[in-house]
Design a protein around this nucleic acid. Structure first.
Lengths: 158, 158
DNA sequence: TCGTAGCAGTTCAAATTTGAACTAGATACA
DNA sequence: TGTATCTAGTTCAAATTTGAACTGCTACGA
């Protein structure tokens, strides 16, 4: 009376590859960014998101959602980056409570200095390793995985 | 004079999906395991690896490599799990220095209790969301990504 | 105009992770 | 033998992450 649908070999092969690749890629990027710019991968992504936002600024909560990070974790990281002069906090115009995290010129400059090496590494680690067909399958497949989890959580949060 | 090969839309789509799916899946599994068994995903994987090893035991360093984890991190986690009675440490027969982490009966029992729900969740989150073609592409593609990083690091370690 | 509820962020303590330094058991070889 | 080296694990302090509790606004209904 074991209803469990265990993973078959092919499924297991995929699962192991998925887990390991995710961990390894993240680790490598973290290390390179640390060396080149003293940033963690998370901090780098904060710079990226802010840089692409209108006015290079975003609400804390929205930023946390984009990053898939807890609110308190973001408070901490923004604190660190503020000390380092990479971002600045200011109250949100509409909203009363509400804080905008804003990229400073220094943060933007660091991002621009760092981005080429980072993209290079992303290509080397994953993009250029895959065939266009594999990239398409991963974009479609994992995109769906992501979207389903996000909607599943609905408004659940941290 | 910008030689950087920036990511095109299709590449970026894949990259974002890859990063987000990895983070989200890990988070969900962590949460479910915590609720059902009081385990982190990492601890669950320790149980899995040990359970599949000959004699249900493995050297610390090898285990750390399999898990893609730092040695000191593993020392900590094995310590926690030892307190909880899930694993046991014993000296390695050959090797003098060298410690084997060994699954206890209690650890094995917990794993067996927990595995069905975990597999269920893995299916729901990712396996059953993908088409067989996507699974094959991911297994091949990300398998290659993983293997290249592992060989790149060669004997480099923590 | 209160009082309650909800939202946005922060704070705080506890758990975990990191990486560098350290210890002890081999190994090698002069 | 004696010394330098290497490997396997551990320890330790610092950085980060977590989740729960808390603070300040806003909105809403009585």
């Amino acid at each position: 009376m074991d209803h469990t649908r265990w993973l078959d070999d092919e499924e297991m092969r995929m699962w192991l590859a998925f887990i390991a690749a995710g961990t390894l890629v993240d680790r490598e990027l973290d290390q390179q960014l640390k060396e080149e710019a003293g940033l963690s991968h998370l901090q780098y992504e904060i710079l990226i998101w802010l840089n692409e936002a209108p006015d290079r600024a975003m609400r804390m909560t929205e930023l946390a959602e984009r990053l898939i990070n807890s609110k308190s974790g973001l408070t901490y990281q923004i604190g660190q980056m503020e000390k380092a002069g990479l971002v600045r906090r200011r109250p949100c115009e509409w909203s009363g409570s509400g804080v905008m995290a804003e990229l400073t010129d220094e943060g933007r400059a660091l991002l621009e200095r760092t981005a080429p090496g980072h993209v290079e590494m992303v290509r080397e680690l994953i993009i250029d390793v895959l065939t266009p067909e594999q990239r398409a399958a991963i974009a479609d497949g994992l995109g769906k995985v992501r979207d389903r989890i996000l909607e599943r959580k609905g408004e659940a949060c941290w």
